[in-house]
Write a protein that binds this DNA or RNA. Structure first.
Lengths: 233, 233
DNA sequence: CAGTATCCGATGCGATACTG
DNA sequence: CAGTATCGCATCGGATACTG
C-alpha cells in the first residue's frame, strides 16, 4: 500500500530506518521550518517557495504517518495547524547538527550561489530580536540595489514584540533605511561578514534613526548557524 | 553538468546545503559503513547488499566531489581504498544522532520486519570484542533454526584479536554453538532483549565451552545504538 | 486560506551482464 | 577484486489549474 516498501533499505539498522523517514526530498527542510515555529500550510510554503503545494501536502501526510507531526485545528478555528510530536521534536539536534555541519564544511561560495531575497527576509523576520531596539514602533526598510525597482524593497515593522514583513509599502514612516546588495546581506546573515565591517567597506548603507542604526548588530540576530568557524579550504 | 542543479533546493540555508549532500538514497548508509571502518568497495557492498554496484560507484564519486571522502591506493597496492576526509568525519555526530533517534522512536517491530542474517552477522563481526573471551582461538557457530539447511549457519573465528566471518564450514572445531532464530538474535542485537534472558526463555541455546558461554554477554558487543530506552508507545 | 487534481517529463535506480 | 555498461520501468516531483 505505502510506497515505502519499495523505497526501503531492508535493513534493521536504526540509521537505515531513520533515513527512510528523513532522507526524502524536502523533508529535512519541512522539519527545519517547523522547528523554527511554523505551523500553517502557507507559512510552510513561504519558507519552501520552490516546493509545490501538492508535494508539501504529500510530505506532511507522510510525516504524520511516521509520527513526527500531528495536525489539529488551532484555536477553535476550522483551519488546521501542524505540530511536532515529541518524536519530531527529538529530531532537533539532528537537524541542527546538519546545519552546523553545512555551515562549517560547505564552501560559503556555494551557499551564496543560492541567493533569494524573500527567503532571506523571511529568515531575518523570524530571528529578529526586538528587545535591543529602542522602545515603540520601528519600521526598517531594506533595499537591494541590484534588483529591479518595484521588486527590491522589504519593510520590517516591529511593534510590541511582533515582527511583520511587508513586500509592498505599508505606508508608515521609515525609521531606518538599509541599502545594500543581496549577496552582501546574505553573507552577513550567514556570518561570513559582519554588518559593521560591511558598513565601513561601504557595501551597506544605513540611514535614519541613529539609535536603530547603532544597535543593528544587536537586533539583527544572525542565522542560528552563523557561529563558529568555516572550513579553512 | 552535475545533475545537482536540478535537485538543489535553491536555498542558502546550511541545512538545505547539507541535505543536498546527505539526503540521497543510500548516502547515509555509505557513511555509516565508512564511519564503522569500511574502506574497500566490496567491503562496502557487504554492508549494503541491496545496493547495486553501479549506484555505489556513483555515490562514491559524488561523495568524493562533495569532499566527504577521498580515494587512494592503500598500502602500495594498486587497489583503491576510500577514506573519510575531516569533513566526512565531522558528520559522525549527525549520523550517530540519526541512529539514536531511530532506535528511540521507531517501533521495534518495524526494525524487526527487516531481518537479514548476513547483515546481522556482518554487524556482529565488526562489533565483537575479543578481549573478554578466553585466550587462544575461539570458534563460534551461529545457527538460525528456521532458515533452510545449508544456508543457516555462520562461523565466527576469533584469533589474536582478529575476527573472521565464514558462511561455510571453516573446518575448525567449534568451541561454542549458538542456536536461535533470526528475530530473537536481531532483537538481542538491537537491545530489545538480553541474551541471558532469551537463554532462560529457551529461545537461545548455548552449547560448548562454559567460559565462552558464560561471558557471551561481554564479548557479544551489542549494536552501538542498543542503549537508552525506546519510545513507550 | 488550505489544500486537490491532473498531467507528463525527467531521472533515479534496480537488475543483469560484462571487463581490466 | 573493483568496478562499468546498458536497459528500461517506476516513481518522483515540477507545473499548472482548480476547489471547498
Amino acid at each position: 500500500m505505502s510506497t515505502r516498501e519499495t523505497t526501503g533499505y531492508g535493513q534493521f539498522c536504526p540509521i537505515a530506518m531513520a533515513s527512510e523517514v528523513l532522507c526524502r526530498r524536502w523533508t529535512t527542510l519541512i522539519l527545519r521550518e517547523m522547528l523554527c515555529g511554523s505551523t500553517r500550510f502557507n507559512e510552510l510554503r513561504r519558507g519552501l517557495p520552490r516546493m509545490s503545494p501538492a508535494l508539501l501536502s504529500t510530505r506532511l501526510r507522510e510525516l504524520e504517518e511516521s509520527g513526527l507531526i500531528e495536525r489539529r485545528g488551532d484555536g477553535g478555528e476550522a483551519a488546521t495547524g501542524y505540530h511536532l510530536t515529541p518524536a519530531g521534536q527529538a529530531l532537533r539536534p539532528v537537524i541542527v547538527g546538519m546545519g552546523e555541519w553545512g555551515h562549517r564544511w560547505i564552501e560559503s561560495s556555494a551557499s551564496l550561489a543560492n541567493l533569494d531575497p524573500s527567503l532571506l527576509m523571511w529568515d531575518i523576520r523570524r530571528n529578529l530580536r526586538p528587545e535591543p531596539m529602542p522602545p515603540g514602533r520601528a519600521v526598517v526598510q531594506f533595499r537591494f540595489k541590484e534588483l529591479p525597482a518595484g521588486k527590491n524593497r522589504w519593510w520590517l515593522i516591529v511593534d510590541a514584540g511582533e515582527v511583520d514583513l511587508c513586500y509592498s509599502d505599508p505606508g508608515f514612516d521609515v525609521d531606518l533605511y538599509v541599502a545594500t546588495d543581496l549577496r552582501t546581506m546574505t553573507a552577513i546573515w550567514m556570518g561570513f561578514a559582519s554588518i559593521n565591517g560591511e558598513v565601513k567597506a561601504r557595501r551597506v548603507f544605513l540611514e535614519g534613526d541613529p539609535r536603530l542604526a547603532g544597535s543593528v548588530q544587536d537586533w539583527l540576530r544572525y542565522s542560528p548557524f552563523a557561529t563558529g568557524s568555516t572550513a579553512a579550504e
